[in-house]
Every structure is written in structure tokens, then in C-alpha cells.
Design a protein around this nucleic acid. Structure first.
Lengths: 188, 188
DNA sequence: AAGTATCTTTATCGTTCGCTAAAGAATATA
DNA sequence: TATATTCTTTAGCGAACGATAAAGATACTT
């Protein structure tokens, strides 16, 4: 989709999309605060001005990484919502999808939830909270479409949200997959 | 218990226990990384050298705050474990106790779990992880005493741990008490 | 009163942070 | 070839961080 225009000046010496993917992995593993501009530059083999020319700022780079993560995970969650046949089944499918996602590419948890909990930057927390809020609204709508009352849908979404936050934190705390699955089935 | 020795040199100009309580509240609300030495000094009405003379370092102060938190919460969790009549009841009692604790004195969540998720300092994370591990061992022992098999006790403790992490994170994310309670009862 | 021990204040130190001005290098167009 | 445009490098800025040396203040002990 990124139409390769003829390009005017000196071409960029690195792949911006690869760099974004690497940055996303670093932010997911270590968190926004713990990943420094120097770390990112070292990983991308680039000096700070190149990184700033390509992405604008550390925050902008993080937000691009969050967008990328959202696009990646949207398909999995969409399938879970589409396939659900009733509200309780929705909860099970969403949480199992989440756990699979959190354990993919190493035990990194959820980029959104982990940084919502961990980042000191208030503006970033607000942006992440808005994403979570959107997710919750989508789930509540689907739950109502599956027959839940508004109050039931709210409660269901709250339970899913708490469980997702717990799973993300537990994954990052090092809990192994078997224990996580045992925990999840106890919470369904 | 703190025997007031006659005191030798110039007396301290502030109450170290009050300062510790204030620091604990700050660490609980904002997290270890986000609370600076300057913030602590401003809150205690003290210059850095006084704070360092009294507590040693920012990390030492945090660890004292964690100890204090542990002593405060031990009674509540002890009651929950003591009163439990079977493993499932134990889970319910521990999680309800946790939620009450997390909402006391403002929506601060769990000092241990919140900082385990949020802090960039690896040594602090390790110390907090050890505390969590101890807690888990205690709960598993009590679950076995109430008739759970070793495997059942492990699964139960994993579920409790995931739920506690989720509750702490959800509290800190601003979820209201009613939603938290609805979520909790869906996860029991 | 003299001496000693402890705390408080002032004024930083050295490091790391995110970020950028200025100059050089590589591509396009004219 | 000349010029414009864009990226990269070198070098470093200003701010915030945790922490401290040195000097002054206040208590107890002798």
C-alpha cells in the first residue's frame, strides 16, 4: 500500500517498517519508560537524528507501534467476537485469544495494558485508556447482540477487562503457559 | 516498640514513621519510578541529605514502605485464609479482601503488584516477585490443608494470582467499585 | 563550658534523559 | 554540471535524575 514515490533527496538508510516492528517488540518487552532513545538507535543501527526524522519523537514512535499492534490483534479479537454464540462463550473466546496473543513472540503480555499500567507519562496512559475503552464498548455491543441485557453486558465486559489485565500482568511476571491456562479455566 | 533511646546528637526535625507512611502512599499512587527524591523531599518538608540520613536511599525507603504495606495487609489476608472453609471459599475470601484493600485510601491498587508490573528497576522487581511467590506458597499450603490436591492448589493459586493482578490493575485504571465487584463475582 | 555526635542546609556532582543545530553525504531535478 | 532536497553524522544542549561533600545548627555527655 505504501506507494513508492520516486523519492527526492538522499534515500533513508534503513527500513522504517522494520524499525517500527523492532521498536514495537522493545516497547512490548520492556515498556515505554524503560526503552530509551539510545536503546532504539542501537537496535536500529541509527543515530538519533535519523530516528527523529523518520518517526518524529519517541512518543510518536510508540504511538505508531501501538497502532501497529492494534491492527495485528484486531483480526484475532474480531474472530473471537464473530464466532461467539452467547455472552459466556464470548468471554471464553476473548480471553483464550488474549492469552495466545500475550504469549506469542515471547512472554510480553499486552502492549496496551502493560503500558497502561506501567508508564509514568500521563498523556500516553490517557491514549491507552481510550483504546481500552473502545475495546470495551465493542465487546459490550457484541454481548448485547448475543442476548445480554445492558447490565449483564457491562458486568461481562468488566470481568473480561479485569481478567485480561491479570493475564497480561501474569504473563509478564513469568507465569508459565500451563498455569495461565489453569488459572483462566478457573476464572471462566 | 521503637524504644526511645535518650538520643545523642541533634534530634531529627521530622517524624520518620510519618514520612514513611507518606512515602508509602506516594509509591502506591504513582509508582516507584514516578516518585522522585525531590517529590519525597517536598512532601516531607525536608532536604535530600535529611532523607538519605533517615532512610539510606530511595530504594531503601521503598523497601521499608513495602515492608510496612506487608505488615498492614498481612492481618487482612490472614483472616481470609483462617476463615476459609474450603478451597473455593478461600479464593472468594482472598479476592474480596484484596479488592477492599486495593480500594482503601483511594484507588491505589496493590503496592506490590502495581510496582511489580510498573517498575523498570530489575532488582526491585525481583524483590517484589519474591514477596508474591511467598504469598502464593502460603495460599497453596492453606488450600491443601482445606482438602485441595497439590495440582488443585496450584491451579487455585494461579487463578487467585491472575485475578489479584487484574483487580489491582483495574483499580488503578479507574474502574469503579461496582464494576469491580460485578467483575469479581463473574470470575468466582 | 568543652567536646562529641547527629541532623540540616547549601550547593552542587556525575549521569542519563529526550532531543536538536550544524555540517557533510547521497540522491533527485534542471 | 549545478542546484535543490532529503537523510546521516558529529557533537552537544538543557533538564531531570539519584546522591553527596562541606559547613552550620542543636542536642547529649563529661
Amino acid at each position: 500500500m505504501t506507494t513508492n514515490k520516486p523519492a527526492r533527496g538522499r534515500p533513508r538508510g534503513f527500513d522504517a517498517e522494520e524499525g517500527l516492528a523492532a521498536a514495537q517488540a522493545m516497547f512490548a518487552r520492556d515498556g515505554y519508560d524503560a526503552v530509551g532513545v539510545a536503546d532504539l538507535c542501537a537496535r536500529l543501527g541509527v543515530k538519533p537524528p535519523s530516528l527523529y526524522a523518520a518517526y518524529g519523537s519517541k512518543r510518536a514512535l510508540f504511538e505508531k507501534a501501538v497502532s501497529r499492534y492494534g491492527a495485528q490483534s484486531a483480526a484475532a479479537y474480531g474472530t473471537a467476537l464473530d464466532d461467539a454464540v452467547n455472552p459466556v462463550d464470548l468471554k471464553r473466546r476473548v480471553l483464550e485469544t488474549a492469552l495466545d496473543l500475550y504469549l506469542a513472540d515471547g512472554p510480553q503480555g499486552c502492549l496496551v495494558l502493560a503500558n497502561l499500567s506501567a508508564t509514568a507519562d500521563a498523556e500516553i496512559r490517557a491514549a491507552l485508556a481510550a483504546i481500552v475503552s473502545d475495546r470495551q464498548a465493542t465487546m459490550a455491543g457484541r454481548a448485547r447482540a448475543l442476548g445480554a441485557s445492558p447490565a449483564e453486558a457491562e458486568a461481562l465486559v468488566s470481568a473480561i477487562s479485569v481478567a485480561m489485565m491479570g493475564l497480561s500482568a501474569a504473563v509478564r511476571a513469568g507465569m508459565d503457559r500451563a498455569s495461565l491456562q489453569a488459572a483462566l479455566h478457573q476464572l471462566l
